[in-house]
Design a protein around this nucleic acid. Structure first.
Lengths: 157, 157
DNA sequence: ATTTATATTGATAATGATTATCATTTCCAT
DNA sequence: ATGGAAATGATAATCATTATCAATATAAAT
């Protein structure tokens, strides 16, 4: 599928219409599902939830729409190592809702954290600037995850 | 498979023997491959390379060994979004070789960078300390990737 | 309103990386 | 040597994701 926004900017820019895409029922439904949850949903999770409201929507469309949303920067795709991708509505790195993840390698639990972000954002901004200069790399997004053991898993040797 | 090092420390600690595992030909061969390259190899890449030296080694063993290596912390597994996992010999975050990745979402190219790490390490150390205190989460590793467009892909709208 | 070109959809099948199974072989401790 | 756990490798199974393709819906043009 040819992307219409090849040079488009990262977050929340020119949504669908601005990019030449149509805002359809399935797409709206999928965005609604993403907007109504704080969880980290897989494609199939989303499919099941959307299906409740619009039973005619197929899994293929969910995957396609997510691909589109990720590409346009409206949605983030994460990999926590359990073999299926997770999706979250994107909020720019400066936004209130922006968070990073703690991934428990024991039980797979994901903890969002938004604390300690202040200094991180500042450092990341500088780092991105340096990377842009040195590698001519235009950064549109970043991924930060901490791996380790959550409280419950530290006891179980 | 039951892990023998349930409470074991993260990096390069107590390698195989210390963990109760045997250092076998296949395992040595896989470690050699990982040690001799700076690339980001997939399981199948590794399989092919190991096969050159030891044709009897099967793909299953490669996967199993990588799983083991990742679990013991000797190897990192990365996901760059192209559907297959990549593996790198682990070096502790303080080590010289430690690097983060720039992932080009245009062509899939991966750029390692080790610059600007100094301040990052310092900040990460503080962040990890805070996370440990607040969430009782014992951090053993972190993942930082920047996504964007490499120089070559910025022209092609 | 009708036509026309294009976008979007959904059912199905295909792909491909990773895992499970299981019989066989290797290795260590006794 | 020998008993038993650990490790291996061939094969089949799993399962998330993609490709295919005919059918439908939409926007723009007439």
């Amino acid at each position: 599928m040819p992307w219409k926004d090849g040079t488009g900017p990262p977050w929340l820019h020119g949504k669908f219409k601005g990019c030449g895409y149509r805002m359809t029922i399935p797409r709206q439904g999928i965005l609604d599902v993403l907007n109504e949850t704080a969880d980290h949903l897989s494609a199939e999770d989303i499919y099941h939830k959307v299906h409740g409201a619009y039973p005619s929507i197929g899994l293929t469309t969910v995957y396609r729409t997510l691909e589109l949303l990720v590409h346009t920067g409206l949605v983030y795709r994460f990999d926590f190592g359990d073999g299926r991708a997770r999706y979250e509505l994107a909020e720019g790195p400066k936004s209130i809702g922006h968070h990073h993840h703690l991934v428990c390698t024991g039980c797979g639990r994901i903890i969002d954290y938004t604390d300690f972000i202040e200094e991180e954002i500042e450092l990341l901004k500088q780092t991105e600037k340096g990377l842009t200069k040195k590698y001519k790399f235009r950064v549109t997004n970043h991924l930060i995850q901490f791996y380790g053991l959550c409280e419950a898993c530290q006891g179980t040797g």
